[in-house]
Simulated scan of single mutants.
Amino acid sequence: MKPVAVWVLAGSVAAVVFAGEQIPAHDLSADEIVQKNVDARGGLDAWRKVQTMIWSGHVDSANAPAPDLPFVLAMKRPNKTRFEVTVYNQKSVRVFDGRQGWKLGPNGMGSATPRPYSMDEATSARDEQVIDGLLIDHEAKGVTVTLEGKDQVGGRDAYRLAAKLPSGVIRHVWIDAQTFLDVQVDRQVRTPRGQTVVVDVNYSDFRSVEGLQIPLEIESGAPASDKKDKLTIDKVSLNPALDDGIFTRPAPPQMHRKSVSIDVDASPALPGAGHPSP
């Protein structure tokens, strides 16, 4: 799987931001929309209690050598991540310790050498809010949010918010006007050929996990492309014990460093969706 595709899936990314209608003066303000979003997702206090999280599931990608590739994504505040995807019984690993990142992929010979993130990859990873996104506790994160307009996303009205990150990067977040859950987010990514492209990330199939609303399907891709990457989350674990060592430079396969594991029996059940059908 290509590096750009992996991080577009784990976590976040873009949409067409033009031709949206302007919000009338009597409609909700940006602060009110953000507050409704926080409440809809489970509340600020509940999210602040989440210090670590693990997702496990499978990935379908046009860039992948096979369908339904199993993955595990481990996240730890403030901004540490470890993403493992299994390809033909070998693991491809990407880790970020909050400052630096490394990637390790099987080379078909049973060994490989970890490579550092590119400058663009490291910058993008530093901008991510890996556990709770851009809007929850945004002031504490140094993220400024303004309201730009209202668009149709998936046939439903959605507020378009502009989120300015401490790095100066501006990303857009679309909030469903009825459920107030996140339905889309955007950002620019650089391809391996050095081209800058806009990528859509759409969130769906929200389920309640210990009172928090979490999307179990994340689909991403360029707006004009028919080829989309889809990440499906089968299990979610909140506040599992995660040693900082798993977020350091990955060891080659012959070193047998332990992979991230999740106790599926201890994971909460994922009952009915929280996002109504259009």
Rank of each mutant, 00 (worst) to 15 (best):
G105D: 14
A40R: 15
T146C: 08
G149S: 09
P114K: 03
P278M: 02
S259I: 01
S267G: 04
D229K: 03
E219A: 12
A241F: 03
R99I: 01
A15W: 00
R171F: 12
Q184F: 02
S111K: 07
V95I: 07
D263F: 02
V17Y: 05
P215E: 06
I136S: 13
A25Y: 01
I262S: 14
K91H: 10
D243N: 13
V93D: 08
N63S: 03
L134A: 15
D176R: 02
V169Q: 14
F247N: 06
L73T: 07
V16W: 07
V189C: 00
E32G: 14
Y159S: 03
D244F: 04
A140D: 14
T179P: 08
R48F: 13
Q213C: 12
S267D: 09
T146H: 09
D132H: 06
L270W: 07
F96I: 00
A25M: 03
T179W: 00
Q152N: 09
D39S: 13
Y117L: 00
G110V: 02
V145W: 15
T248H: 10
R171Q: 14
A158W: 09
R82L: 08
Q90H: 07
R187L: 08
S61G: 02
D39E: 15
N202E: 06
D68Q: 12
E139Q: 13
R249W: 01
V38I: 15
K230H: 07
D265I: 05
P116T: 01
Q90I: 03
D120V: 05
T86C: 08
W47N: 05
M75G: 07
G43I: 15
H26S: 02
Q35H: 14
D132G: 03
L28E: 02
D157H: 04
A177F: 00
S267H: 02
R82K: 07
A241V: 04
T232Q: 06
R115V: 06
Q51A: 09
V38C: 10
H275Y: 11
V145E: 13
L231W: 05
I262Y: 05
D265H: 11
E148H: 02
S61E: 05
I136T: 08
R77V: 11
A251K: 10
S277M: 10
I136V: 15
P65I: 06
A222E: 11
V264A: 13
R77K: 11
S92N: 06
S111Q: 08
A158Q: 06
N239V: 02
T179I: 05
A19W: 15
